[in-house]
Simulated scan of single mutants.
Amino acid sequence: MQQENMKTLESLEDFRHFSEKELEIRFDQLKKQIVPADKTIREQAEKHWEHVAKPLGSLGVLEEDIVRAAAAQGEEVPDFSKRALLIFCADNGVVEEGVSQTGQEVTAAVVSNMTRGRSCSCLMAVKAETDVFPIDMGIACEVEHRGELYPLTERKIRRGTSNFTKAAAMTRQEVLTAILTGIDAVRVLKEQGYRLSAVGEMGIGNTTTSSAVASVLLQKDPELVTGAGAGLDSAGLKRKTEVIRRGIGLHHPDPMDGMEVLQKVGGFDLAAMAGAFLGGAIYHVPVVIDGVIAAAAAAAAGRIAPAATDYMLAAHVSAEPASIWLLDLIGVTPAIQAGLRLGEGTGALALFPLLDMALSIYRDMDTFAEMEIEEYKPLV
């Protein structure tokens, strides 16, 4: 694990030095590499489940997750032996509107805790045998610790996005920089032997940005998709909903243009997560969706490149109201329903042990033929 080997993302390309034209060219080149997951492998994996000596479909969503992972990796037996959690960290200018209980200093404090292995996600990652890679995409305040157990990779675009009630959250150049950083993070991990990844985030105000993105992509009123986040009271939730409505009304992002939605009402963390989902499709690495924030990013990635959804797995349905609608939009089914709403990739980490268990049955269980008993037949 990372504690022993101190793995980093040192070879992550720094797109902050690219011109907007160079970013556009690179993104177009990479996007062309996104194709649907391997249909033949998918069919083989589905057939294999039918022969495993157990009741048909009895592992539910986990069977579909194994099939999706196999098709994504292009191997009938997927490999989960080395997995990573990418945590994209950034602040959001919209917190000026009073949409959060806490200030931006909390983002820096939690990220500092991550580098010491003391955040919720890092503690869970130890149990899930997962390496953690926090990336600074736009933290506003200084981070006290920047190394130790989980070194912080610095790719800060600027100290937080713009307040989307006054201006677009990002420029076109900034959203491209964030997306390409997410894509390249998956490339680096793949080169280091990681075959399964998850994404998480840390940034005060990002339930507001993700609710805004969800509202546009789902074409639903902000009141329907906006939750209390880290604990707003009813007045705070009403204010948050109105802020989102104002931002969307100011910019009118095209719901069919995922990049435009991210640019106008999203955040650096959401854009980088969307990039990681696109990177999963480019480099054939299944990427696990965490909660509603990650789901909003995944849905935006699906609008940018529809085939990218083939490479996504849903860990859980969040307690936030938009969560299940976003997962339905992407076309994935969550394996866990536990009312989770912590973020940082914690829900995605909770899926990894379940995937290990399902894979052991898929890979190691005797078939009906080997046990010399009659196979189950599908019910009509």
Rank of each mutant, 00 (worst) to 15 (best):
G147R: 10
G138H: 02
A297N: 14
E372M: 07
L30W: 02
P334C: 15
A298D: 02
V213E: 07
A358Y: 04
K264P: 01
I330Q: 11
L359V: 08
P222F: 06
D356E: 14
P306W: 11
A108P: 07
V61D: 09
A281G: 08
T309P: 06
A315Q: 13
F15P: 00
M256W: 10
G160I: 03
E372W: 06
A299V: 13
Y194P: 01
G200H: 06
E10Q: 05
P334D: 15
T171D: 07
A72W: 02
K264E: 12
V261S: 02
A128V: 05
A185D: 03
A84N: 09
Q29E: 13
E22K: 12
D257Q: 03
E129D: 14
G200S: 09
G247H: 03
Y362K: 06
K32S: 12
I293P: 00
R245Y: 11
T102I: 10
I282M: 15
H51I: 07
C120R: 07
P134V: 01
E144G: 09
R159V: 01
K31E: 05
T115Q: 08
I179L: 10
K190H: 06
F164K: 00
A45T: 11
G236Q: 02
D14L: 10
E201L: 11
S234M: 12
Q73G: 05
N163H: 02
Q337V: 14
T367D: 13
A338I: 12
A281P: 02
E105Q: 13
R187M: 01
A338W: 09
I179V: 14
D269L: 09
S119C: 13
T181Q: 08
T241L: 03
P286I: 07
I336W: 11
L196W: 04
E148V: 11
L278R: 01
Q3P: 05
V111T: 04
D290H: 09
A45N: 05
E375A: 15
E191A: 01
A308P: 04
G247W: 03
M124S: 10
T309Y: 05
S112M: 11
A169D: 09
L86M: 12
V186A: 02
I330E: 11
R16M: 06
E97F: 05
F27D: 00
E142D: 14
T102K: 13
L86V: 11
A308F: 02
A338H: 07
G279A: 00
D184T: 03
A294S: 13
